[in-house]
Amino acid sequence: MIETFLNPEIIAAIWPIVLAGLANTVLLSLIVVPLGLLGGLIVALLATVHHPLVRWPLMAWVDFFRAFPPLVLLVLLFAGLPFAGLELGGFACVAIAFFLNTGAYYGEILRAGIDSVPVGQIEAARSTGLNRLQAMGYIVLPQAVRNVLPDLLSNTLEVVKLTSLGSVVAVPELLFQARQAQSLTYSPTPIVLVAIVYFLILWPMVRLLSRLENRALASRR
């Protein structure tokens, strides 16, 4: 059993490949999480503008990218853009797809956070002469982020998992590397190994999330 699924010799041989994949997964996460948050911030800030010319396109944008399967979006960018004369690498396609897809999700979360801050906070800030942006930056956003921290973290967890989609467009992240190693060794060991690595990097985040959620529940009581 161990011989098949966690063969020590194979692990020793493919370890460098997996490590390179881990490095790329971390790098990819460090790029797509901030990109998604940036996209989310843009969406959430635009959502505070109630003008119909902003409101309706924004709603359509968010709905579209939440309804669009991220894998399909990624393949479409990767396979479709070259026909439009745009030859982007897999890495860039992943970055764009995540900006669009997770930006929409982060945006909805941040918007809920902004809505949770009492309007009196903005009025107090504005009454002392702070302009709209200052009131947003110093008063509303810090409270908004705190109020939706568990949701932000939960979404971030999903985003890190979704970086495995990069394997489809030949980004050498964990899953891609594991499948390379699998085809070299004809063994399931690399996949099992990568599953364990994923668990080890994500589990602390899951624990942290549980603690935050429990604390949020306790404070609501």
Binding site: P118, G120, Q121, E123, A124, Y138
Partner: peptide, 11 residues
């Protein structure tokens, strides 16, 4: 301006 509900910044 001073408000009924204080509106201090809690953070």
């Amino acid at each position: 301006m001073v408000f009924q509900s204080f509106n201090l910044y809690p953070h």
